[in-house]
């Protein structure tokens, strides 16, 4: 074994050149690409984490919204129930009032018509009595008989009314 100084020095130079060439043309770009990939993966992990948190937030919000909607629906149903009950009562009451009113009216009308009928009858009776009187006069009744007749007649009429 012997050391050849020329080979020794050439080796150092060759190694230096190889180092420089590898750094410039092979491993420099490769390392930067690996660095880039590492960064992009870190970014993706961060984004995923952020998305997860967001999703949880949304889920929570959705749950709250559903809860609120359910409560609102409950409220609406409750309101509808009470208002319908109230309305039904209203309807019943107004129907009752109406019926009462109609009855009142009917009674009033009946009374009115009765009065009218009585008045009409009285009138008729008057005219009839005139006719009767004239007829009796035509027959020339005696005064006694005539007055008896009128009295009976009047009595009769009075009783009938």
């Amino acid at each position: 074994m012997s050391i050849y100084l020329g080979s020794f020095i050439i080796q150092i130079l060759a190694f230096g050149i190889l180092y420089w060439l590898l750094k410039k043309y092979a491993f420099g770009p490769l390392l930067s690409v690996m660095q880039k990939r590492q960064e992009s993966i870190e970014n993706q992990i961060q984004t995923a984490e952020k998305n997860r948190v967001d999703a949880e937030q949304y889920l929570k919000e959705q749950k709250e919204a559903i809860q609120a909607a359910r409560q609102e629906a409950q409220q609406i149903v409750e309101n509808a129930k009470t208002s319908s009950k109230k309305e039904a009562e209203e309807i019943v009451r107004s129907a009752r009032d109406e019926a009462e009113r109609l009855k009142e009216q009917a009674v009033q009308q009946i009374k009115h018509e009765t009065d009218q009928a009585i008045a009409k009858l009285r009138e008729q009776v008057g005219s009839l009595s005139v006719i009767l009187a004239s007829k009796i006069i035509e027959k020339e009744l005696d005064e006694k008989a005539q007055s008896q007749l009128i009295e009976d007649f009047m009595k009769e009429v009075g009783d009938r009314l």
């Binding site: 020329g6 050439i10 080796q11 590898l22």
Partner: peptide, 30 residues
């Protein structure tokens, strides 16, 4: 003094390493 075979092989080795490294990094992708 230069041992021609040694120096030749140093150069051959360097060239092979360079070829492998550069060929492998031609179409880099992240």
């Amino acid at each position: 003094q230069i041992n021609l075979s040694t120096t030749l092989m140093t150069i051959v080795t360097s060239i092979i390493v360079l070829i492998i490294a550069i060929a492998a990094t031609r179409s880099l992708t992240s």
